[in-house]
Design a protein around this nucleic acid. Structure first.
Length: 826
RNA sequence: UGUCCUGUAGCUCAGUUGGUUAGAGCGCUACACUGAUAAUGUAGAGGUCCGCAGUUCAAAUCUGCGCAGGACAACCA
């Protein structure tokens, strides 16, 4: 069973953002400028359009797919199967609602899962304004030791690449075991005397060695060559509990005791000052450590990525300039404005541009924020051991991807954030009371109908909007009568056991769940096709790009493990990428991408396929060079075509009879027996190679056989047998031998060159090669000794030609006698 | 920063469990052939097997440390 994706999941994923772009709207406008119905209809159309392109490519390149019955994730039946899986997870306590810091895309208005963040191209190098901010220490019993012969006020230095999070600062985190020092010096902007606390090992990053212990009196207040002096060291834990003045007091944190120094094990001294500015709302680590110490939170940014009304002069400004509509971004980002403000306040120690990799949303291409959100999670961490154990039973090609890349990923598996705040996708089938005390997960339309009936009876709904649907009727017409997408499904209000109304959680689920649910949902399992599902699950193998390691490979594996306690596939071929001929990744931006349709037009599908398969193993990156395709055409296909033409020419002249009885082996010449031995060896080699998911080895073996053995040696030396006038066993043997070779070559090359091989086979046999049985190697026809002897003869022939060449002996003049030393056989 | 892959002739790639002088195709150069079917043959030039160190009688191959390219991951304040 081959899993393939007839509708192309990534296209479905992207269709919504593509549609938004085409319609010239943003997510904000949905429900206002355009109704959700119209919007979803546009999305549906976009899917269809991509489907056509995909189908066209599939046919032309000869993918072996059932295009008549693609699975389509927006069909009601597909969604019902997904709901069934979700219900199963829910019943096993593997689905829960949680409040965590998550990657969030304000531009798309939705949270992102870890594997969405793991798509290629999400992390990009960006230049941000970074600030070393100065937090003023309150003098009290705990901090007294810092004030001993202090020089000006005492500050703790903390570095951030996201100055917009500084107003939401609630704590400072230090490493309890790290060494810290006090440094007396001057503020580089206000030139006031001040004492600063930072990690000892970070001194050299911020203070020039040659100015250490320089005269304070001689400082010219120009910010250059600032003298400094170390005023004593101590360990991080001595700082814990010290309180400081809020840096930017726009609003007060809630739910805790903020503005103190706390200890965290994640603090390092690789960057910054060894002190982490902690804004619990905008960092996963920050939230965790703040909870541990009861710090509370402050979230001064809204879901659109703008500062909230409390932020005074900054209220309403986007925290990243990228969030403004094109052309409307202010000259100074809030990061810059805040930095200037801090400089003026005397609370900035260093402001500079800092280049680092920052994650971007794959829908909008804009930077993401880390933001506190309510979300539904799949508790994959609970099944980590099974995920790992089952993975070990999968045959990965190449193996290292499974043990290395995928294995490491599973070792560090996180709970899967399923929630998406969007409109076009599969709705989460969970209904909740307003207080969240009662909830219900729906696993089928039948169950939904029953619950609707109860709700109507209880009076929370007037009527059943899905009245046209008949439970247990699996016909398409029945399923086509209803739509369980948003907004329709949002109109359903159910009733809780205690009689309260329950509304649907408004989230959609991660589209990757859709694709991972494919083995079940394509069959509408378990509502229909139980046998077909059982026959095809788990899949024998799947093939996809290695970049899908954390995408499709993972979601298939996770869902199968959690819901079936099984693998979803027994083997994986993870393809490498197609690079351009100098080894650069192809991209539209660089203009080095090859148009697949053009390439197919120019060379034909078989030459392209043969080139790609024979040139490099599927998992190795392929340096795509069109000259390689012409070489394949010249060498392999021309040799095969000419060999067939030679056969056909004389077979037609002589009226070769396919049905005639086979000439006995003893009646065939030694060379007949040799090529048939080579042929059966080839069958065995190809069988082993294909069986081990090594198509490259198989294709190369077939190519060598055709070019060297069959065309260049057998046909060349046996031409006279085909030419001669009289019929007879010898001539028949030649025809039958060559015919058999061509027949088998057609069969062996069918997986790689499906069109050429089919034509060849039809011409030879009158039927399709793709309906023929895979050839079996006949061990008794293999004569290893004969193959070795012939190899020797080939070598001697070449040597003889070489000698003739040296002696300038004409090739057409016969040689009466030649001899070779015995060592030539080695 | 981590994980994984790759590195052999100008190019694309082979190279088994370590074992004589490291191979093929293409390209290049030269010569011959046109009695090989729309397919020719022979020869030649071209290599620090990415580098260094180690194991070994023996390393392209095994080990370690690097370098370069690529993919993927990462809360990096």
């Amino acid at each position: 069973m081959l899993i393939a994706r007839p509708d192309g999941i990534p296209m479905v994923c992207r269709s919504s953002s593509v549609v938004e772009k085409e319609l010239g709207i943003t997510k904000e406008d949905i429900g206002k400028k355009i109704s959700i119905e119209d919007y979803n209809a546009a999305c549906k159309k976009a899917v269809m359009r991509y489907t056509d392109v995909w189908n066209d490519m599939t046919r032309r390149i000869g993918f072996w797919l059932d295009l008549e019955k693609p699975y389509v994730t927006y069909h009601t039946k597909y969604i019902e199967s997904v709901w069934h899986l979700l219900k199963k997870l829910y019943d096993d306590d593997l689905l829960y609602k949680g409040y965590t810091i998550q990657p969030y895309s304000p531009a798309a208005g939705t949270g992102l899962s870890s594997h969405e963040l793991n798509q290629p191209g999400t992390y990009k190098p960006v230049k941000d304004t970074s600030v070393v901010a100065m937090f003023k220490v309150n003098k009290d019993h705990a901090s007294e030791f810092l004030f001993k012969d202090a020089f000006g006020d005492v500050f703790i230095l903390a570095w951030t690449t996201t100055p917009w999070t500084l107003p939401s600062n609630c704590a400072l985190t230090i490493g309890p075991k790290l060494e810290y020092v006090r440094v007396k010096s001057f503020n580089p902007y206000t030139h006031e005397p001040q004492t600063m606390v930072l990690a000892k090992s970070r001194l050299s990053a911020y203070f020039n060695e040659k100015n250490e212990n320089a005269s304070f009196d001689e400082y010219k207040k120009d910010g250059k060559n600032i003298p400094w002096k170390v005023g004593g060291g101590f360990y991080g834990h001595q700082l814990e509990g010290i309180r400081y003045e809020q840096l930017l007091p726009y609003a007060q944190p809630e739910g805790g005791d903020a503005f103190k120094v706390i200890g965290g094990d994640f603090v390092t001294t690789e960057d910054g000052t060894g002190v982490v500015h902690t804004a619990p709302s905008f960092g996963a680590d920050d939230m965790r450590v703040a909870r541990q110490h009861g710090i509370g939170t402050l979230t001064l940014v809204d879901l659109q990525g703008r500062f909230t009304h409390e932020m005074g002069e900054y209220a309403g400004k986007y925290v990243k300039n990228e969030y403004y509509p094109t052309g409307q971004a202010p000259e100074k980002s809030v990061d810059v404005e805040l930095s200037i403000k801090l400089k003026e306040m005397g609370r900035a120690f260093k402001v500079e541009k800092y280049e680092h990799n920052y994650p971007h949303c794959w829908r909008t291409d804009k930077p993401i924020l880390y933001y506190p959100l309510d979300s539904w999670f799949v508790r994959t961490t609970a099944k980590k051991d099974r995920l790992i154990a089952l993975n070990k039973t999968i045959n990965w090609k190449p193996e290292s991807t499974g043990t290395g890349r995928f294995g490491n990923w599973l070792e560090n598996v996180q709970d899967w954030n399923l929630s998406r705040s969007r409109y076009w996708g599969i709705p989460l089938p969970i209904w909740r009371t307003e207080d969240g005390d009662e909830e219900l997960c729906i696993g089928s339309l039948k169950q939904l109908k029953e619950e609707i009936a109860r709700a109507v009876k209880a009076g929370v709904m007037k009527s059943d909007p899905y009245a046209s649907f008949t439970p247990d009727d699996m016909s398409e017409t029945n399923y086509d009568t209803i739509d369980i997408h948003r907004p329709y499904v949002d109109n359903i209000v159910l009733v809780s056991p205690s009689g309260k109304p329950m509304k649907r959680e408004t989230d959609l689920i991660d589209v990757w769940f859709d694709s991972g649910a494919m083995p079940y949902a394509q069959w509408h399992y378990p509502f229909e096709n139980k046998a077909a599902f059982k026959d095809s699950f788990p899949a024998s193998f799947i093939a996809e790009g290695v970049d899908q390691t954390r995408g499709w490979f993972y979601t298939l594996h996770a869902i199968a493990t959690l819901t079936q306690d099984s693998v979803a596939y027994k083997a994986v071929v993870s393809n490498g990428l197609v690079l351009d001929k100098v080894g650069q990744k192809m991209s539209k931006r660089l203009g080095n991408a090859v148009d697949p349709f053009k390439t197919l037009d120019e060379f034909g599908a078989d030459a392209v396929r043969w080139y790609m398969i024979s040139n490099a193993s599927p998992w190795d990156n392929l340096k795509f060079d069109a000259e390689g395709i012409t070489e394949v055409q010249r060498k392999f296909f021309r040799a095969l075509f000419n060999t067939y033409n030679f056969f056909a020419l004389y077979a037609n002249i002589d009226g070769f009879d396919l049905q005639a009885p086979q000439v006995a082996e003893s009646e065939r010449t030694e060379m007949d027996r040799w090529i048939l031995s080579r042929l059966n060896s080839l069958i065995a080699a190809c069988d082993a190679a294909f069986g081990d998911y090594e198509p490259t080895i198989a294709a190369r073996a077939v190519q060598d056989f055709v070019v060297e053995d069959l065309s260049n040696w057998y046909v060349r030396l046996n031409r006279r047998r085909f030419w001669k006038g009289e019929q007879g066993n010898d001539k028949n043997a030649a025809f039958q031998t060559l015919h058999r070779c061509l027949e088998v070559v057609a069969m062996l090359s069918a997986p790689v060159a499906p069109f050429f091989s089919d034509r060849l086979f039809r011409d030879l046999m009158g039927s399709s090669v793709h309906l023929s049985s895979w050839p079996k190697s006949n061990a008794s026809a293999i004569d290893v000794e004969l193959e070795q002897r012939t190899a020797l003869a080939q070598k001697l022939t070449s040597l003889a030609l070489s000698i003739r060449k040296k002696d300038s002996t004409r090739r057409s003049s016969p040689t009466s006698r030649s001899s070779a030393p015995e060592w030539a056989s080695r």
